[in-house]
Design a protein around this nucleic acid. Sequence first.
DNA 1: ATATAATTAAGAACCATTCCTAATAAGGAG
DNA 2: CTCCTTATTAGGAATGGTTCTTAATTATAT
Lengths: 134, 134
Amino acid sequence: MAEKRNTHQKKMILETLCEMKNHPTAYMVFERLQEMGSHISKSTVYRNLSEAAEEGIILKLAITDSDVRYDGNTMPHYHIRCRECNGVYDSKIPYQDYIDELSRKEDGELISSHMIEFNGVCQKCKKRMEEKEK
Amino acid sequence: MAEKRNTHQKKMILETLCEMKNHPTAYMVFERLQEMGSHISKSTVYRNLSEAAEEGIILKLAITDSDVRYDGNTMPHYHIRCRECNGVYDSKIPYQDYIDELSRKEDGELISSHMIEFNGVCQKCKKRMEEKEK
DNA sequence: ATATAATTAAGAACCATTCCTAATAAGGAG
DNA sequence: CTCCTTATTAGGAATGGTTCTTAATTATAT
């Protein structure tokens, strides 16, 4: 009655994801693995990340990208999207339960959670832009 | 010194978008136009929607989809994504300015706005699920 | 050690989106 | 109204991330 197997590939993929702090897409994880000399195939990376997200081992990010992104950190948290470099950063503010309550009161839908994405410019890009000004 | 032209195609595309209340992707607008017997090409639909969004005439939706969606309603508002039918609905709750202030205080980034997407089940699907229960 | 079935590698297929180019037509000038 | 300029379009090829397919592999139970 074998159901789930622990393979080298799965372990490598999840370890690599957790090392990457840039909220990568499945493709980015695949590329990283290739750089490291791994021969894990594209489809294996896509499948494992997708399955891990379904199992709740990793997080499938709610990001307004045209690509799905993953995060090793499964704690609920918000994201900041830099409109200059397109990078994704974590916000430090805690989950706002009351936002869900507000929606439950106002809207007729069955709300279970929400996500927030901030639009802004990250510190790195901000600094770079200020230096260009001079 | 002609800069911007008003073409039949542009007019038709924007009118069609505003008639559609389901926050369509560019492709969905293209399909709708075809159903209506229009011969407007795919690339024209994509280009016009993208340009209109840049000009602020329409809204490029912040939705955690793998596709970009557009909205004729340019008022800032939040969205509810139904996890059953995958539909996108508008929330009635007003924009929460203080969320931006909170992030500005806690995070170091230059925040200009945010978007919220609720995860839930829409009224239609809720009703359908309840009827199946019986 | 063997069996079986979950998992993988490799790459073809998919499909929304972008890109390219010749043809078209909006709108200003005469 | 007619001509010119050039923004815009139609049509389709190219792109590229993701999904799918299949035979080969390999984790795990027995």
